[in-house]
């Protein structure tokens, strides 16, 4: 009887330990989000914002190039006049 009780208790400890380990072994990650594909939504949003910013910076670049060209022409003309 004593042996049986101690055996059951030992088994209990083993099982509890195993359960504890299995629940602790998983780290909460957004795996579900990736597996059902919804992460693409986040990527799409990020890419949209990024594309907008890059478009803005390229437009700024072209605008600046136009101004540089005009100014250089103006300076050239002025130098010719003098």
């Amino acid at each position: 009887m004593k042996k049986l009780i101690s055996f059951i208790m030992l088994m209990q400890i083993v099982v509890i330990k195993a359960i504890a380990q299995s629940s602790r072994g998983e780290v909460a990650m957004a795996d579900v989000m990736r597996s059902n594909g919804k992460i693409y939504v986040v990527i799409a949003v990020l890419l949209t914002i990024f594309a907008a910013l890059i478009c803005f910076i390229i437009m700024q670049e072209l605008r600046l190039k136009r101004i540089e060209k005009k100014l250089n022409e103006h300076i050239k003309n002025q130098n010719k006049q003098q």
Binding site: M29, I43, L46, L47, F50
Partner: peptide, 29 residues
Amino acid sequence: WKILTVALLLFTIVMGMMAEVPHLYILNE
């Protein structure tokens, strides 16, 4: 180099979200 910038950042955003990362406590995603 501007094209390279855009390419590298696109790679960063897409792969940064998609790629496998180590599963760590507290840090998570």
